[in-house]
């Protein structure tokens, strides 16, 4: 177990190095000058700016400086927010994205398992038909349409009650988080519902269920101990990739609901060719996802005794 964990972590570190290198490479192939401003600056000022950000050095040297800085956990100073460190930007905005993502995952996970179980239980009956129809909608409507509709319905809701029941945007309290996280988790929830449903249906006729029934175990116990638990195992495996999808999928939701998350910063930074912020956020996100997947794998190994970790 320990050796396996160690091995995975080392592999993770190498992957992060690869992400960092790929980001650096992509960034330096981007045409355009990150230091150009709306007002044209003289050659002297340009040169000074280049020196300030170390862009005057050879590319290889820049690469090693960059790797060294990453190793120390220092992503440098933003190009556009000239007095702000990228670390500060990540520290302030990542928790927002993470909170929203986490809530979305919880919504999606809990919702997926419950709805999936419900549809499997009432297979081909009214609840199944209704939920599966909604699931299909959830899978096939693009996230930006969902987000816009979500906000629109909030406006209508508030107008209906004549008071702010739920704020239409911004961040801070739980009431701000509710609808954006729900919208963000919707696609994943739909996906998980489908997964849960088919995995439930597979288990319903499994031998051990038949045995349990034959033994005369109470129905509720069979359902929760044997069916639900076993059927939700596959859901856990896809949570890793789902986290990745949700954290990056947050862009649109952050844009529409005016949420100060990291995704919005990334889009802005790309528009502004803010090298340090782009590289910092990409490497950070990449590393986060890599270690998230490792964590999910390890947790899965703990939950499911059939999976041997080696």
């Amino acid at each position: 177990m320990f050796r396996y964990t160690l091995k995975r972590l080392v592999q993770g570190l190498i992957t992060v190095w690869f992400i960092a290198t790929a980001t650096f490479g992509a960034m330096h192939l981007v045409p355009g000058d990150p230091l150009s401003g709306e007002k044209a600056a003289s050659a002297e000022i340009q040169a000074n700016l280049r020196a300030k950000y170390g862009l005057d050095k050879p590319v290889l040297q820049q690469y090693f400086v960059y790797l060294g800085n990453i190793a120390r956990g220092d992503f440098g100073i933003s190009f556009t927010q000239k007095n702000r460190e990228v670390n500060d930007i990540i520290r302030e905005h990542f928790p927002v994205s993470a909170t929203m993502g986490l809530l979305a995952i919880l919504f999606a996970g809990a919702g997926g398992v419950l709805w999936g179980a419900l549809t499997a239980l009432f297979r081909n009956r009214l609840p199944d038909v209704i939920i599966m129809f909604l699931v299909i909608l959830g899978i096939s409507v693009p996230s930006f349409v969902m987000a816009a509709l979500g906000q629109l319905s909030l406006v209508k809701l508030n107008a209906f009650f004549g008071a702010t029941v739920l704020p239409v945007g911004g961040w801070g309290t739980v009431r701000h988080m509710l609808v954006p996280s729900l919208v963000l988790g919707l696609g994943t929830m739909a996906y998980l519902t489908r997964l849960m449903r088919s995995s439930m249906l597979e288990i319903v006729n499994a031998d051990f269920i038949r045995t349990a029934k034959a033994k005369g175990l109470p129905a509720a116990r069979i359902f929760s101990k044997h069916q639900l638990r076993n059927a939700s195992l596959p859901v856990v495996t896809v949570l890793g990739p789902a986290i990745a999808a949700i954290t990056t999928g947050g862009f649109v939701v952050e844009l529409v609901f005016a949420i100060p998350g990291l995704g919005r910063y990334f889009v802005q930074a790309v528009q502004q060719l803010d090298y340090t912020v782009i590289m910092g956020t990409t490497v950070f996100y990449g590393a986060f996802l890599v270690f998230m997947v490792i964590a999910v794998d390890l947790v899965y190994g703990l939950i499911d005794p059939r999976v041997r970790l080696q």
């Binding site: 179980a117 239980l121 009432f122 029934k213 129905a219 509720a220 069916q227």
Partner: peptide, 19 residues
Amino acid sequence: VIIDESSFVRSAGRQLLVY
């Protein structure tokens, strides 16, 4: 199956509601 299907669904549904 010893328990009939509809009563199974009913009690499992109740369990699901609790969850």
